[in-house]
Write a protein that binds this DNA or RNA. Structure first.
Lengths: 231, 231
DNA sequence: ATATGTGAAAAGTTTCACAGCC
DNA sequence: GGCTGTGAAACTTTTCACATAT
């Protein structure tokens, strides 16, 4: 049961949605917050707690409690009036919404500094993302190990995507090659890219979804906020 | 230096008009987009181009051209009607807005996988961020080198912040220690934190500014977008 | 008594459309 | 002809406030 985010933005440049997409009503920022709710819920679950209220979730994240309820209500009714939410139940519900109630096969392109760090990032595995391949175009990198995974030549990208039914790719290559690799990923059948390259990698009318993370942009956001927070 | 947006009549001589206030009329998303405009402008500058139009910037980023002009107009008038924007001039203007027209001393806490990758990230230096220290609490890490910088014990954090006049910190420590380290950073006088730890590092009423980057959250956003784009 | 879910209001952001200047 | 800058409209998101359920 697909939900469609409305097009606008919060903490990132607006992504264009060129074509028509069904059912609006889900703010993009809501999706980010759901992932944060999930993070808090999983932490609470570890602490053994059973129930939680929207106000408590909101407080932990510095949000308005009404916003938490509104975000959830985009997808259904998960709470009990006068009581709150079951932590286990809400955890599962949000995972189903986000699509992480199953595992995703992911490949990583680029075994430089950032690629190495990302390949070992525990948070990915914990949310059901399985790294099934790492690729690099640099011959000197081929055959080296990143944790348990051996770096493969870029030539094997397409066959791996097909064999492992890879849907998501993490792009951690230099800006200069990002566009070409992204095109190759799309042609190979990958439907989502998490792009760390500081360039626009967005095909106009395709079915490819891109989420951008530009670390320098984040630091610039921080600089602006610091400069503009001193009265 | 902060900017005061529109509202009042504040056009004297076509110069950007700075002021002494936080930013009331500046959408949060505008700041992120400004950093993206800057990225594109710097790329254009390298290609030798001299002028650019809002429509061309917009096209490169998949945005509406009116939005580009509106974003810029929050801070002044930087273009010429009928002509466009000087690439060099607009680059400098955006850097002044973001606060990256000078250099910032930054420290990094955490020399794990992610910390190592971040310490070598070229994009930071390119935008005027100078890494002046790396800290870790793990004794086995102390004294090891990350590029040209030697990892120092956490005990030296405060003295380094003072000596180097450090304003920004990049937090790349495990979730379990993030809150304590963040508090220490604030007490030491750091005013901005780029937080990679998957926990809320919130300071209630303090002057501390935090920008969060949770890599697992980004991948979940991607999963949601992929699941909800088919149909 | 307490907390959800949601219509309606408020606040915020983007797009339209065009005056003004090149 | 061209393009910027911006008032006003359109649209989106958040908050308020309260009916509804336990």
């Amino acid at each position: 049961m697909p939900f469609e985010p409305t097009d606008s933005d919060d903490e990132e440049a607006g992504r264009p949605s060129p074509a028509s997409n069904p059912s609006p009503n889900v703010p993009v920022a809501t999706v980010t917050r759901l992932a944060l709710y999930l993070r808090e819920l999983q932490q609470l679950q570890r602490s053994g707690q059973q129930r939680i209220q929207s106000s408590a979730i909101a407080k932990r994240l510095g949000l308005n409690d009404s916003l938490v309820r509104r975000d959830l209500s985009c997808f259904g009714q998960f709470g009990q009036r006068g009581v709150g939410y079951s932590i286990v139940g809400l955890t599962k519900a949000i995972q189903a919404i986000l699509g992480t109630d199953r595992s995703w096969n992911v490949i990583l392109i680029g075994s430089g500094n950032l690629g190495r760090a990302l390949s070992g990032y525990r948070g990915f595995n914990q949310q059901g993302f399985r790294l099934v391949g790492v690729f690099d175009s640099d011959p000197s990198k081929i055959g080296t190990k990143l944790g348990t995974i051996t770096v493969s030549p870029l030539e094997e990208l397409e066959s791996t995507v097909e064999r492992e039914k890879v849907e998501l790719a993490i792009l951690a290559v230099p800006a200069s090659s990002a566009a070409i690799v992204a095109q190759r990923l799309e042609d190979a059948g990958v439907t989502g890219i998490l792009n760390f390259a500081p360039v626009t990698v967005r095909s106009p009318g395709s079915g490819l979804t891109v989420v951008d993370v530009d670390l320098a942009v984040e630091l610039q956001r921080l600089a602006f906020a610091v400069v503009n927070s001193r009265g």
